[in-house]
């Protein structure tokens, strides 16, 4: 069989490297659409637009669940007792230290808005249960207080507060 001779090595090497490089760049570029197609599509993103929730029907001591971007959002109308409990906890006792004020909107202490997804492995904690009067995750026993902060169990972080704002005193916009 024919074998390649060794003359003109450098010019040939340059050509081979250039061709290989261009082909590799093209091959890498084809990965872009193949990867991008798995990201949320335009309709999913559009459906994730902010939602407005009317707070008037939620009575004191009641917690409701709404859905935003497919996630359960707890809106809890806290009682005086719950607010006090949340405020008086010493930060030193918290695995993920945060004051209650950092977790509610100023002047709206009674409204606690949380992403109802346990920071351990994604189950939905049950409201008004557990030793801290807050949320109890039935999957692996994580316990959250009346501010949604982690107090005991395997979850590493406090329940997340979604982006939201008060449109009026009785209406919030989540997202």
């Amino acid at each position: 069989m024919t074998t390649m001779s060794s003359d003109g090595h450098s010019r040939r090497d340059f050509l081979f490297i250039a061709t290989g490089t261009v082909a590799a760049v093209g091959g890498a570029a084809t990965l872009v659409p193949l990867v991008a197609q798995m990201n949320p599509d335009a309709s999913t993103i559009a459906a994730g637009a902010p939602i407005e929730v009317d707070l008037t029907p939620i009575t004191e001591g009641q917690a409701i669940k709404v859905f935003w971007r497919g996630k359960p959002i707890y809106i809890s109308h806290r009682t005086k007792k719950e607010i006090e409990e949340a405020q008086k906890v010493s930060l030193a006792d918290l695995p993920d230290p945060q004051t209650d004020a950092q977790r509610v909107k100023k002047g709206h202490d009674q409204w606690l808005v949380l992403v109802g997804i346990c920071t351990h492995l994604g189950c939905i904690p049950i409201a008004h249960q557990g030793d801290y009067d807050g949320f109890f995750c039935p999957c692996h026993g994580s316990q959250y207080d009346t501010s949604g902060r982690i107090r005991r169990g395997p979850a590493p972080l406090n329940l997340a507060v979604p982006p939201y704002e008060f449109v009026s005193d009785s209406k919030i916009k989540i997202g």
Partner: peptide, 12 residues
């Protein structure tokens, strides 16, 4: 929906 909404869906 592939043609309209999926990222690069029209291409695929």
């Amino acid at each position: 929906a592939i043609m309209r909404d999926v990222n690069y869906g029209w291409l695929l």
